[in-house]
Simulated assay, not measured.
Amino acid sequence: MKKIKKYLVENGYTPLGLYHSLHILEVFIGAPIAFLVYLIMGHFYDDAFTIILAVLVVVVLIIIFTECITYTLCRCPGCGRGLRIESMFQTHCMYCGEDLDGEFHWQSEVMAEQIREDAEKEEQKIEEQKEEHRSLDTVNVIVRRATVKDIPFLITLLSQVLEVHASIKPDYFVSGYTKYNSTELEDILDDESKRVYVAEINGAAVGYAFCDIKEMPAKPFVQHFKYMYIDDICIDSNFRGKGVATKIFEHVKEEAGALGCREITLNVWTGNRRAFAFYQKMGMKPQKTTMEIKV
């Protein structure tokens, strides 16, 4: 009954509207059932009285069932009395005169219960998030510099991130490839102007960040400074949404500060909403917009 009441409130039913609906259903459902009983009884019995009696019993049971539901649900918004058959063509309660097209008298209870359920769900969500962070602290996410031994893992994740980009920008990226091959990754790992960081849990690599250390060239019209460019961050699909990316980003931010960088920059492809939302959460703001037009 609780679920029925919730459904009625959510779908805008009124006591009078529900009352009419139930009795219309009583006719359209009860009549075929009574006729079916009549046919079945007529097949087994020749006594017309027995057949008619059986049909009447079925009709009475259907009426009683409908009236029980009516009395339970279709109550006056004002006095709370159940609606009776006399109310079929009335729009106001015959007892207190209340408008029967108003809210159910129990509607406030249903709405209060819904508020409690929503609050409980929100509390549960917060607890799950806390537990998730506690579990990450327990397993001890470690972020370190990548080594040659990490190349197979890096290629696996490079494949994952390229497929994400190919789905967003198929006119630019070609599915089935990776941004770097093994030889190119070896060169990157040896290049001091680049930083590749790997996040691992219990010794297993679960994410990476490719970064470049760059300098704004000394020119009269621009400031000269060093900055960290994040070329790519990717978390293994089995560990996304668990806070690993946050750990990597925080580590990159610390490294950038230690290396004397003034800021961190990166590019996000339009359509990659998840990445954009994550970087905003990390405190990043749009710096410039790259635009295009097909010719």
Rank of each mutant, 00 (worst) to 15 (best):
Gly80Arg: 06
Ala166Pro: 07
Ala258Arg: 15
Asp191Leu: 09
Gln129Met: 13
Val161Ile: 12
Val164Glu: 03
Val295Tyr: 09
Leu25Ala: 15
Met284Leu: 15
Ile168Phe: 08
Val148Asp: 10
Ile115Phe: 01
Trp106Tyr: 13
Tyr229Trp: 14
Thr138Ile: 10
Tyr13Thr: 00
His92Asp: 03
Ala218Ile: 00
Ile264Gly: 03
Ala199Phe: 01
Glu184Asp: 10
Tyr7Phe: 15
Leu185His: 02
Gly271Phe: 08
Val268Tyr: 04
Gly102Ile: 02
Phe44Val: 06
Trp269Val: 07
Arg84Met: 11
Gly97Leu: 09
Val139Ala: 04
Ser175Asp: 04
Tyr177Glu: 13
Gly176His: 12
Tyr71Gln: 13
Ser237Tyr: 03
Met284Tyr: 05
Val57Ala: 13
Pro77His: 07
Lys242Trp: 06
Tyr71Trp: 14
Asp232Ser: 03
Asp190Pro: 01
Lys288Asn: 14
Phe49Lys: 14
Gln90Pro: 01
Glu200Gln: 11
Leu18Trp: 09
Glu123Met: 11
Gly260Ile: 07
Ile235Pro: 04
Ile64Arg: 13
Pro77Gly: 12
Ser167Asp: 12
Ala31Ser: 12
Gly241Tyr: 05
Gly257Trp: 02
Ile64His: 09
His105Glu: 03
Ile155Met: 08
Glu120Met: 10
His224Ile: 02
Ser193Tyr: 11
Met291Leu: 15
Cys79Met: 11
